[in-house]
Amino acid sequence: MPRRIVVISAGLSTPSSTRLLADRLATATTDALVRQGEQSTVEVVELREHARDLADHLVAGFPNAALRPVLESVEQADAVIAVTPIFSASYSGLFKTFADVLDREAVTGTPVLVAATGGTARHSLALEHAMRPLFAYLRAAVVPTAVFAAPEDWGASDTTTSLEDRVERAAGELAAAVAARPLRARTDEFDDVPDFTALLKG
């Protein structure tokens, strides 16, 4: 059974460097899993497409029909790749709203890779003082390497510090964490529904 990887991208534009980084991390993770003999599927969640759904959830207290399957996908994921743009030295408001509506047990113990993009390398510290503590609060298993991409990182060729090297290292850590975990049990919400014929028989 393939491992489920859910990618959360909080980019606001189309195309966005946030989504580009998310895609690179997802590809590198699936490749790393293949090398460990594991197959995987990838589901990308573009939070910008659910901005109104998230606001509705905050007001109503429950997810609408469009947002519910997104939250369920995160809860059932074998791994999560979370990527956000950095604004005002922290994750975006859109990303924080998504974190606010997640069930507090949604990613407990789930391997998570955190990553971010920003206009300057000075924002890279936000991964350690904002992103990592957020997922620690949610009790996720965040991998050691976090990936930040500033404008100058795209196309960098230094083999010791290039973005590609950091992506590969982080993806390898995530793949190893996933492969070390037992397969998550797949549940069906209708498993406990009694057979209709049996009900008629009393």
Rank of each mutant, 00 (worst) to 15 (best):
16 S>P: 04
17 S>N: 14
18 T>A: 02
19 R>P: 02
19 R>Q: 09
21 L>I: 01
21 L>T: 01
22 A>D: 04
22 A>M: 06
22 A>S: 10
23 D>Q: 14
23 D>N: 15
24 R>I: 07
25 L>N: 01
25 L>T: 04
25 L>I: 06
25 L>P: 00
25 L>Q: 01
26 A>Y: 04
26 A>F: 05
26 A>R: 01
27 T>H: 14
28 A>Q: 00
28 A>R: 02
28 A>E: 05
29 T>Q: 02
29 T>L: 00
30 T>S: 11
33 L>H: 03
34 V>G: 14
34 V>K: 14
35 R>Q: 15
36 Q>N: 12
37 G>E: 05
37 G>F: 04
38 E>W: 07
40 S>C: 08
41 T>C: 06
42 V>I: 08
42 V>Y: 01
43 E>R: 14
43 E>W: 06
44 V>P: 05
44 V>K: 07
45 V>R: 10
45 V>I: 14
46 E>I: 11
47 L>N: 00
47 L>K: 00
48 R>V: 15
49 E>H: 11
50 H>R: 04
52 R>A: 15
53 D>M: 09
54 L>R: 06
56 D>A: 14
56 D>F: 15
58 L>D: 00
59 V>M: 15
60 A>T: 15
60 A>D: 15
60 A>K: 15
61 G>T: 09
61 G>M: 07
61 G>I: 08
63 P>L: 08
63 P>E: 05
63 P>Y: 09
64 N>D: 09
64 N>V: 04
65 A>M: 09
65 A>L: 11
66 A>Q: 13
68 R>G: 02
69 P>N: 06
70 V>T: 08
72 E>W: 11
72 E>R: 14
73 S>T: 11
73 S>D: 11
73 S>M: 07
75 E>Y: 15
75 E>D: 15
75 E>F: 13
77 A>Y: 08
78 D>P: 00
80 V>F: 05
80 V>K: 02
80 V>G: 01
80 V>E: 03
81 I>F: 07
81 I>T: 10
82 A>R: 08
84 T>D: 02
85 P>N: 03
87 F>C: 06
87 F>V: 12
87 F>I: 12
87 F>G: 03
90 S>E: 11
92 S>G: 04
93 G>Q: 06
94 L>A: 03
95 F>N: 02
96 K>R: 09
97 T>V: 14
97 T>C: 09
97 T>A: 12
98 F>N: 04
100 D>I: 05
101 V>W: 08
101 V>M: 06
101 V>T: 05
102 L>S: 00
103 D>Y: 10
103 D>G: 09
103 D>W: 12
104 R>A: 13
104 R>V: 13
106 A>W: 12
108 T>S: 10
109 G>Q: 07
110 T>D: 05
112 V>P: 01
112 V>D: 01
112 V>H: 02
113 L>D: 10
113 L>R: 10
115 A>M: 02
115 A>Y: 01
115 A>C: 03
116 A>L: 03
118 G>Q: 03
118 G>I: 06
119 G>L: 06
119 G>Q: 01
120 T>F: 07
120 T>L: 06
120 T>I: 09
122 R>F: 12
122 R>H: 13
125 L>R: 04
126 A>R: 07
127 L>C: 03
129 H>W: 13
130 A>V: 15
131 M>I: 13
132 R>E: 08
134 L>G: 02
134 L>R: 02
135 F>D: 04
135 F>K: 05
136 A>N: 13
136 A>Y: 10
136 A>H: 13
138 L>M: 07
